[in-house]
Simulated scan of single mutants.
Amino acid sequence: MLRLCLPLCCAAACLAGAAPAGTVIQNQASAQFSLPGGGAGLVNSEPAQLLVNAVCRVQVTPDGTPQAPGQRLTVRAGEPATLRYELSNAGNGPATFTLSAQALDGAFTPNLTTFVDANGDGQPQPGEQAEQLTLGAGASAAVLLVAVVPAGASGAALVNLTAQCPGGLRTTTTSLSSWPRPHRTSNFARPSAPSGCGPVTRPA
């Protein structure tokens, strides 16, 4: 009678999904057998090595869709609006993400710029404008999207923040509403010039 005892090779594959990129997983199969006349033996296979490949995944919060925007912000026309997000590296190795922004169909088209909030103050600063962001596995960073609404614009528009890596992309949608800034007018009353004439009475 021959009896085989084999380890589950899929266990190594399961470990590979959670292991950091570049990890080498050792795997070896063994066969134990017994013969009808007595005796037993054990045979080991050649060791196999599994190399964990890099998997790039990105998450952006707050998440949103055109039907259910993740954020809603109202701003006056001609003024900038700062939208705040958190970008996380959900992959198993360091990755460089490409940041971009798009204006979807709406009543106006804002001017969009992406920033990496390096100091975490929630405000765009000189030198923080960026179109790429590198993060280690499990790391996250604050990302700002500044939308400048055209002067005189009114209504609503949708804007997207997109973070992309070789393994895919993640897009989140924000609703941006605006109304025109009221015109400031000054009414000046022109003083009436003295006529120089008044009622004249004739002495009786």
Rank of each mutant, 00 (worst) to 15 (best):
T82H: 03
V159M: 02
L99C: 00
G127L: 01
G106Q: 04
S178V: 12
P110Q: 07
V146P: 02
G152C: 10
E131W: 00
V159F: 00
L15E: 03
R190F: 11
T173K: 09
A16M: 13
L2W: 12
F97W: 04
P110S: 14
C5R: 15
L135G: 05
L87E: 01
N119I: 09
T98E: 01
A16V: 15
N53Q: 13
L2C: 14
Q49K: 13
P110V: 07
G120D: 09
G41T: 05
P36V: 03
S30M: 08
P94K: 07
D117T: 07
A204D: 09
Q164H: 04
A13I: 07
G39V: 06
A18H: 13
S178W: 11
Q26S: 06
S195H: 11
L8E: 08
V58S: 03
A21Y: 14
N44P: 00
R181H: 13
A107G: 15
H183K: 12
L35P: 05
P126I: 04
N89G: 06
A77S: 06
L158I: 11
C56T: 12
M1I: 08
P150Y: 08
L158R: 10
S45Y: 05
A18T: 10
S178M: 07
L169N: 08
D63Y: 14
A153L: 04
R184G: 13
T65N: 06
L161T: 01
P7I: 11
R72G: 15
R76Y: 13
C10Q: 11
T74I: 12
Q102E: 01
N27L: 09
N53D: 07
L176D: 03
N111H: 10
T173A: 09
G138S: 14
L161C: 02
